[in-house]
């Protein structure tokens, strides 16, 4: 039973990690808590639902979702955040602006798609696999694989490409990066696109996993994912995976030993303990500017 619960915890952790990485990407560059990420993820899921209902086929639907959501994130950056940054607005102004954007997106989704929970077709349904008394459904397995794949891609982009190098430079010192000829604005735009893309993948996978889409789906999941990102050290990509998995396992274990009503609290208790001992998170760098 414990082994089974551990596996469920890891899968749930992957769900959180899929979302947490979006917070981490933007925070890494801008030191900004992008509170609109949860709503962008809900937007991605709705785009996926639209593409799936129009029966475009899986690859086309997937690409459409990623592009549409990436573009939305770029629009948020260029229309809302870039003008504020150009005027040297304090970080808190940016934070409040993205929170506002999150409500606009959420209510826009409600007006367009309605307030009911809509069914979403199950992804990769090939029955269950049982190994040594532990059962895992093919959907859960696909979540695991896609999350790891997404992280591998993001890792390659940030570590092995010129753009990735520019991202890391801008993250360390935007002014100096500008001086050596890096177009920081372009880097920021790219990062937002990447973060939107990860939200789209999360939207598609999580909607397919739980077989439903609804306009408030980003609120609770976004908050938990944010906790996971902070736990792992926000701004560090693999920290998001670690944070997500820890939160997922904590919830599964709390359900096993204490009951479901303690699951939610356990995630935050662990977050609290980790931050007490290591304020920058498990893998976070200590020299972060406090926000």
């Amino acid at each position: 039973m414990i082994a089974q619960q551990l596996v469920y915890g890891v899968i749930l952790g992957m769900v959180y990690a899929l979302l947490a990485v979006g917070y981490s990407l933007v925070f890494g560059i801008l030191r900004l808590l992008n509170m609109s990420h949860g709503s962008v993820y809900a937007f991605g899921a709705h785009m996926a639902l639209m593409a799936v209902t129009l029966t475009w086929g899986l690859p086309a639907a997937f690409i459409f979702t990623i592009v549409a959501t990436g573009v939305l994130n770029v629009v948020i950056n260029n229309v809302v955040l870039a003008p504020l940054r150009a005027r040297n607005a304090p970080n808190i102004t940016l934070l409040i602006s993205v929170t506002g954007v999150s409500y606009i997106i959420q209510n826009g989704l409600m007006l367009t798609f309605g307030s009911t929970r809509m069914p979403f077709p199950k992804i990769f349904d090939y029955g269950n696999i049982t190994i040594g008394g532990v059962t895992i459904t093919s959907t859960q397995l696909s979540i695991l694989i896609v999350t790891l794949l997404l992280f591998a891609i993001l890792f390659l982009i940030t570590n092995c490409t010129k753009m990735g190098l520019a991202m890391r430079c801008s993250s360390q010192n935007p002014k100096a990066a500008n001086l050596v000829g890096i177009d920081v604005r372009k880097v920021v735009t790219f990062t937002f696109f990447l973060s939107g893309m990860s939200a789209a993948v999360a939207g598609y996978m999580i909607a397919g996993y739980y077989e439903m889409v609804y306009f408030t789906m980003g609120t609770a999941a976004g908050l938990k994912a944010f906790a996971a990102a902070v736990l792992g050290g926000i701004g560090v990509l693999y920290g998001s995976v670690a944070g997500g998995v820890i939160v997922g396992i904590a919830e599964a274990m709390a359900t096993t030993f204490l009951g479901s009503n303690y699951a939610e609290a356990s995630a935050y208790v662990i977050l609290f303990l980790v931050l007490l001992l290591k304020p920058s998170g498990l893998f976070g760098k200590d020299n972060l500017e406090k926000v």
């Binding site: 619960q5 899968i11 609770a220 599964a252 359900t255 479901s260 699951a263 939610e264």
Partner: peptide, 20 residues
């Protein structure tokens, strides 16, 4: 028996307990 928090979407751990 279990109590769940409002907004929960993942029930796998609780389901496993019931099954056991």
């Amino acid at each position: 028996e279990e109590l769940y928090e409002d907004g929960t979407v993942d029930f796998s751990a609780a389901i496993n307990k019931f099954n056991e």
